[in-house]
Nucleic acid binder design. Structure first.
Ligand code: MN
Ligand code: MN
Ligand code: MN
Ligand code: MN
Lengths: 157, 157
DNA sequence: TACAAAAGTTAGCTTTGGCTAAATTGTGTA
DNA sequence: TACACAATTTAGCCAAAGCTAACTTTTGTA
């Protein structure tokens, strides 16, 4: 045990260290899985927002609001098309399929739960929105329920 | 405005919709940036744990606990080597550099803050560990402070 | 109604992080 | 001390998601 790099151990660390390899791996696997749906989720959510705001979702605005280039958006929209989440004739603006609409709705709700929770907790509006964009993809149903309950309690005063 | 896909709008949604394109993009950009450091952070944190538990960190165990294959670990360890976070002679086990040790320490602390917070909030141990593995990479300093404060308050009773 | 500018697409490149198959090295034990 | 088996590495494949450059289509306006 030359040069132990861990100091300041707590109960939490002990618990983490006592987990089986499989149990630990399941957390990492979940993160890798989440990464595979993040792009799709953020796109449909944003497309729904743009349709709500402007009546239409155009690639140029998707690119601007995501901070990526138009060709990147064009390529990713093809994936959404393949997956049956959007409809688009070439050079025209984008519509959501019923499946896309439902996914967008679910993502928006989850996004809102996370933001409302962070704000209820004391995080500023801006940072809450900022952090939620990443956190939302890594929150299990159990945690989401706890978030909801906390926000409800906190706003009841 | 054919077929508005957003119902059930709240204050939160309004706030999100009123942001400028740049402000919205900054959140997505932060997520993309976080993705670039996740692998490195999880590896050094795990390596520190293994050294603490076993006196050594061997690729085969890193692979098992991450749920990936040995060649994947081997390749990623080369990146950690390039970045000056670990030392390893071929076919020998891994040591952390001083820089690697410090990064691991910082990651462990952040991981613990997130887990302790979720548990204090009412999430189960197992799910807290599971969700924290993803959440930890998307929590700003401000949010982390709020988490710490909440856990402190909650445990003082 | 032309035509320039804006929007969208295509082609082709890069990096990251997975994988399998196969080669190499280290080690415990007969 | 062999040598089989375990561990590690290398080579080469793939998909995702970013980019630039170049091309095509649409649109607003003179
Ligand atoms: Mn997001
Ligand atoms: Mn979102
Ligand atoms: Mn992690
Ligand atoms: Mn971690």
């Amino acid at each position: 045990m030359t040069c132990d790099p861990m100091s300041d151990m707590t109960e939490t660390d002990e618990n983490a260290l006592n987990r089986s390899p499989d149990e630990q791996a399941s957390g990492f696997e979940a993160v890798r899985t989440a990464h595979q749906s993040e792009m799709v989720e953020d796109y449909v959510e944003l497309i729904a927002e743009l349709i709500h705001m402007n009546g239409a979702a155009r690639p140029v605005e998707i690119a601007e609001r995501l901070g990526v280039t138009q060709p990147t958006v064009s390529k990713n929209l093809n994936r959404l098309k393949r997956e049956g989440l959007i409809l688009q004739e070439p050079y025209r603006s984008i519509r959501l399929t019923e499946e896309g609409r439902q996914l967008a709705e679910a993502c928006r709700k989850r996004h809102r739960i996370v933001v409302d929770f962070l704000v209820a907790l004391g995080v500023s509006q801006e940072v809450a929105e900022y952090d939620a964009e990443g956190i939302e993809h890594h929150v299990s149903e159990e945690t989401l329920s706890v978030f909801r309950a906390f926000t409800r309690e906190r706003s009841k005063s």
